[in-house]
Amino acid sequence: MKKMTYDLSQIKNISDNDPDFIKMMVDTFVKEMPVDLERLAAAVVEEDRVNVHRFAHKIKPSLELFGLKGHQQALVLEAWTKNNGPEDLNEDFMKLQQELEETLIQLKRDF
């Protein structure tokens, strides 16, 4: 069995463990994250600093809320937009994408 990639403890804490609220948060994450991830992917490929920043910044709170390690990659992507260096974002983006894809599969299975 695969290890859980997500941690709902923060959501449970802010909702007083309300199952309806938790389900709503999961449903929203599952619905919106693939769209944001796709937009972030396009921005990374195009080296579009404005949109890399926009989408990395947008998904960061959700990554934190769901206890995902990809939060670190989002920080790297966001920081890249402030630098003028030609660092390769592909590795950080691929780690983030892999974790999110696994998390989305797990959340769909679990909820």
Rank of each mutant, 00 (worst) to 15 (best):
V26P: 01
E101H: 13
I14M: 13
F66G: 00
L75D: 07
N13D: 13
V30T: 11
A79D: 12
K82I: 04
D48S: 05
E102H: 14
P19V: 10
K2L: 03
D110N: 09
K2Y: 05
R54I: 08
N51Y: 15
L65A: 10
M33P: 00
P61V: 02
K95I: 03
N13T: 07
I14F: 14
V35L: 13
V35P: 00
D16Q: 07
H53S: 04
I11S: 03
F66Y: 07
V52W: 12
D48V: 05
V52G: 03
P61Q: 06
V44M: 01
E99K: 10
D20G: 08
D92L: 08
V44R: 08
N51G: 01
V30A: 13
L100I: 12
L89S: 06
L63S: 03
N17R: 14
S62R: 10
M24Q: 10
G70I: 01
L75E: 09
T5S: 05
L104C: 05
E102T: 12
Q72C: 02
V26N: 12
E32D: 14
L40C: 08
T28H: 08
D48Y: 07
E64F: 12
N13C: 05
T81L: 07
E64M: 11
V45I: 13
L63V: 02
N51E: 11
H57Y: 09
E78W: 00
D88Y: 09
T103H: 11
K2T: 04
I14Y: 12
G70L: 02
L40T: 06
M24E: 09
D20S: 06
H53L: 06
A79S: 15
K95V: 05
P19Y: 03
E99R: 10
K95E: 00
K58M: 08
M94E: 12
H57P: 03
F93W: 08
E91D: 10
P86E: 06
L37G: 00
E38P: 01
F21M: 11
T28P: 00
T28K: 12
P34A: 07
E101S: 07
D27P: 01
F111C: 02
E101D: 00
E32A: 08
D110Q: 08
E87M: 14
V50E: 11
V44D: 00
P86S: 12
Y6W: 15
D48P: 02
A41V: 02
V45G: 00
N84M: 09
E101N: 12
A42M: 03
G70D: 08
M24F: 05
A56C: 09
E101V: 10
F55A: 08
S9F: 05
K12H: 12
L89N: 06
V50Y: 14
L65M: 15
L68Y: 14
E46H: 05
D36C: 05
F29V: 01
F93N: 04
I105Y: 06
T81D: 00
L77D: 01
K95S: 11
D88I: 13
L75F: 01
A43N: 08
N90Y: 02
I14N: 03
V26Q: 14
E32Q: 06
V30H: 03
I14V: 13
P19K: 04
P86D: 09
K3A: 14
D16E: 10
E32F: 03
L63I: 03
V76K: 15
D18Y: 03
I11T: 04
L37R: 11
E78Q: 15
E102A: 13
L63Q: 02
